[in-house]
Design a binder for these strands. Sequence first.
DNA 1: CTGAAAGCGCTTACAG
DNA 2: CTGAAAGCGCTTACAG
Lengths: 341, 341
Amino acid sequence: MSDQPTAPATIEDVAREAGVSTATVSRALRAHPYVADATKAKVIEAAGRLRYVANPNASRLASGATSTVGLLAPVLTSWYTSEVVAGVEEVCAEERYDLLIGTADPEARERMLNGETRFKQRVDGVILVDVMCREAGAERLAQLDVPVVVLGEALHAVDSVAIDNIAGAALAAQHLLQLGHRRIAVVGGVSDALDVHDVPNSRSAGFSSALHDAGVALRPEYVADGLFTIEGGCKAAHSLLDLADPPTAIFAMSDEMGFGVLKALRERGMVVGRDMSLIGFDDHPVSDAVGLTTVAQPVRAIGRTGAHVLLGLLRGGTRAHQQHMPLTLIDRGSTGTPPAR
Amino acid sequence: MSDQPTAPATIEDVAREAGVSTATVSRALRAHPYVADATKAKVIEAAGRLRYVANPNASRLASGATSTVGLLAPVLTSWYTSEVVAGVEEVCAEERYDLLIGTADPEARERMLNGETRFKQRVDGVILVDVMCREAGAERLAQLDVPVVVLGEALHAVDSVAIDNIAGAALAAQHLLQLGHRRIAVVGGVSDALDVHDVPNSRSAGFSSALHDAGVALRPEYVADGLFTIEGGCKAAHSLLDLADPPTAIFAMSDEMGFGVLKALRERGMVVGRDMSLIGFDDHPVSDAVGLTTVAQPVRAIGRTGAHVLLGLLRGGTRAHQQHMPLTLIDRGSTGTPPAR
DNA sequence: CTGAAAGCGCTTACAG
DNA sequence: CTGAAAGCGCTTACAG
């Protein structure tokens, strides 16, 4: 009857309180079948009275399951990653899984691929965000003793959730073409991979092939590296504007590079949408404020879907393979018809 | 000698391999004193050969420590929070603590204050980010059986790491006053608390008292609610600009509200820094791109410091009490002298 | 449907 | 400095 503020209640306390064995308590509390309804009610009632919560370390040790999902990402602070993480966290919380987060510096990534990770014995499954492991890396991931889901990159050897970057870039291209642009530039990033499935390469491929389909060639001097940063986008835009025959429209492969382009335009006294058309990619939360037209991707949904795919695997489901999330173009006025020459 | 890809090595395997007891393995691997150097070397060598990693659930169950830090925040996706989380994560990784993240919806917050949380028995200590528990809540937190550190709000009953919001807002006020502004408005947020220590109230207090010290009154009609969102900042700015006698300068209590103000100015064809001076608060990563003058706070350092304070407590250190992080004004040109009437 | 008992893989007094 | 043994708090065959 007396409050015992120290030492949380154990399963034995509950068993005693309910007048059953600890085995029965364990079964009753986890909705295990074959427990008489009356018994179950008694146990739940006793557990509630004692504010009993099973010690996760003990149950994990005994059962062998960790009830924890590991999440590895290169940076946590980008808008994209934090949104994905939030989606994963939501689902994990709903499904009563813990989320263990690790930062994926190159070494951590390599260790992960080798199976010797900080996650060892700590997690039931792993979600990789924007780690870019390529198909070769995916094959090594598939050998791991825990299921893995990769987010942001479409893969075959392991389950993945991604967007169709080729189609997304084509969407941007078609929008600019429809407005009448022909001198169209791209601000993107150089990739170390030849793989068309990585982000810069596939957006680049989708964009240039859409131009090509319309009979417009992507001139080599219209391709500038923006490093996927705001500052890089700014510099890239300046270099494009310094050309003898500058473009009338720019596709920035990310909204953040697009912000840099906006900065460059402002520095030159140019008005976006009139003197220069600009379209981004992502739908960053700031894009609405600055009026940036963009190809929107459902970032939080990517995180949620990834978590659901992984939890499905953990529950013995079959592989979901590649999931492609939908893209939509949002016109905010940063694009317009090309200015008269 | 043969590779056993299944079943990770246990402490018994290592003990056998090294020819010692499991107790000695346990001591040797955790740099426990009183282990002969030769023995220790033998054990470390054997553990390495077997790729042994102690099962965290077993060691936690046996030792009673979780080696895990819990982090609770209302939203994970704001730039501010994700940056703080990244700082906490860095330190936790360095110090070999796991990080367990939870979202602090109002109910979770209340449960936390009551000590019945998802973190129960899972963590050795808790970090609260932007939860706004006030001194009364802090006193309840102090009763918890684990140490707690609060970030973003200066408190007495528990350790806290925050900035001096009053001084920061004064910094902004002085900057505008120096430029010659007298008709100065504030875009902030209404607070449900009377407490001068919460963010909107203290920034508001610091700002108006700095104006007052210069003999300038903050007119009631120059105070607008921006809801701490981009959209809210935009609407607030429009309402200020619709006044018969509009201000010549605006202090936005957050950079994101500042972005909204920028949007409103653009919508009205006004040029920031010339037609209207604007200063924000935070130093959001986009602020550099849009040229927003702001009061910068060291967000990642807040996270890192908070983690260090908590780990110090976990290691038996004494309370660190309030930590105030430094603020700096960054002039990016969105402020200028008032326009001639 | 329920219980007694073994076992999960560590850590830590307690002896020596 | 080291080992035998108890114990951390659960889960889960195995019987019944």
